[in-house]
Amino acid sequence: MQIRGKAWKFGDDIDTDAIIPARYLNTSDPFELAKHCMEDADKTFIQKVKKGDIIVAGKNFGCGSSREHAPVAIKYAGVSCVIAKDFARIFFRNAFNIGLLIFESEEASQKINEGDEIEIDIKKGIIKNLTKNEEYKVKPIPEFMQELVAAGGLINYAKQKFSIK
């Protein structure tokens, strides 16, 4: 599976309040949430982002609240994946649980510039920067997380592995 899209850059410690401000959390409609994706980090992001585009951020992306509305807003805004140096832990598990692709790569986080055309080979774990003609390594995804992704998220995994009453 391959992903291709344009990079949108964000800094360190992008918190879940910046990704989806709490003032919009009186709904859980994913399309409604998506309208405010990244609003308090970049007000114009949602007008600029195109389907398949990629968010590239620094360290500790998604810190703060446990709101799953954050990865949901990103996913339904059409963003194909998030690349960061590393992720806050609740955001990390939420992303896998709901099937938003995320990649940890310090190199990619540093070297990718806004607007660069990025291609990711998920199987090989390689991020290609088509604009700069560079390749970056991705931190391997743990086996269990790969199982989650393959199953299509935690709920499908539950359906496969457990008897649901």
């Binding site: 446990s66 709101r67 799953e68 990865p71 609740i90 598990r93 939420n94 649980n97 709901i98 998220g153 935690l154 709920i155 539950a158």
Partner: peptide, 8 residues
């Protein structure tokens, strides 16, 4: 954790 974890 997140909402999906709670559902699970």
């Amino acid at each position: 954790v997140g909402s999906t974890d709670v559902a699970f």
